[in-house]
Computed example of a mutant assay.
Amino acid sequence: MSDSRPSGHPCVLPGDDGRPCGRPSGGTPFALCPAHVELVVEWAGTEWGTTDLLPVPCRACGSRLGVRYPSGWACAACEWRVGDVLDDGLPPPRVDVVYYIRFQDRVKIETTANPRRRLARIWHDEVLAFERGDRLVEHRRHEQFAAWRLDRSEWFKLAPEVEDHIGRLAAGVDDPWARYARWLGEAAALHG
Rank of each mutant, 00 (worst) to 15 (best):
C11A: 09
R19F: 15
A147K: 13
V95D: 04
V107S: 02
I166L: 06
C78H: 03
D17K: 15
L86R: 15
G172V: 07
G167W: 04
P160H: 01
V127S: 01
G167Q: 03
Y180H: 15
L150I: 15
W48R: 09
A31G: 08
A187P: 04
A187M: 07
W123P: 07
R168Y: 06
D84A: 14
H9M: 13
S4L: 13
P176L: 01
A44N: 12
W43Q: 15
A159C: 07
H165G: 08
E186L: 14
V127A: 01
L53A: 14
V37Y: 15
E110K: 09
E163D: 11
I101K: 03
L90N: 10
G22F: 02
P55E: 02
A77Q: 01
L65M: 10
R19C: 14
P20D: 08
A31F: 05
R116L: 11
P14M: 09
P10C: 08
G27M: 13
G26T: 03
F145A: 02
D125S: 04
L90P: 02
D125N: 04
A189P: 06
A181L: 06
L119C: 05
L128D: 00
V95L: 05
P20I: 11
A44H: 10
W80E: 06
E47G: 00
R118V: 05
D52I: 03
R81V: 09
A189R: 12
L150M: 03
S2L: 14
P34A: 02
F130Y: 06
V127P: 00
R19W: 09
D3Q: 09
A147G: 07
A31K: 09
T112S: 12
L169P: 03
L158R: 12
D87H: 05
N114W: 10
